[in-house]
């Protein structure tokens, strides 16, 4: 469903998810400062850690109606960037 939506709505979802991350983690930046391609997790970019990821995953599950599952090799691959996370949400969301 959402996968075929036009780029404008992808961008809108990315902004929505960025806002959700900022709010869930009390980040001291504005959502606009999270760039779509920048890393969310790890030493670069936003620099989220494992407990941040769990907090974000909880909010994602509530808002979009699905539970995140770890990739067998890399728990955090869908958190590699805002775009990757938003794309995952678009593909899996039930609400």
């Amino acid at each position: 469903m959402s996968q075929q939506e036009p780029a404008a709505s992808d961008a809108a979802l990315e902004r929505e998810v960025a806002g959700m991350i900022v709010e869930a983690l009390n980040l001291e930046i504005s959502a606009d400062e999270i760039k779509a391609e920048e890393a969310l997790y790890g030493d670069d970019g936003l620099g989220l850690d494992s407990i941040d990821i769990l907090e974000v995953a909880l909010v994602v599950s509530k808002r979009y109606g699905f539970q995140l599952k770890a990739d067998s090799e890399d728990n955090f691959r869908i958190f590699s960037s805002l775009r990757s996370l938003a794309g995952h949400i678009a593909a899996k969301r039930t609400k």
């Binding site: 995953a57 599950s61 539970q67 599952k69 770890a70 728990n75």
Partner: peptide
């Protein structure tokens, strides 16, 4: 070592 809650469940 499960990470997300759904991983703990499975």
């Amino acid at each position: 070592r499960p990470f997300f809650p759904a991983d703990v469940a499975s």
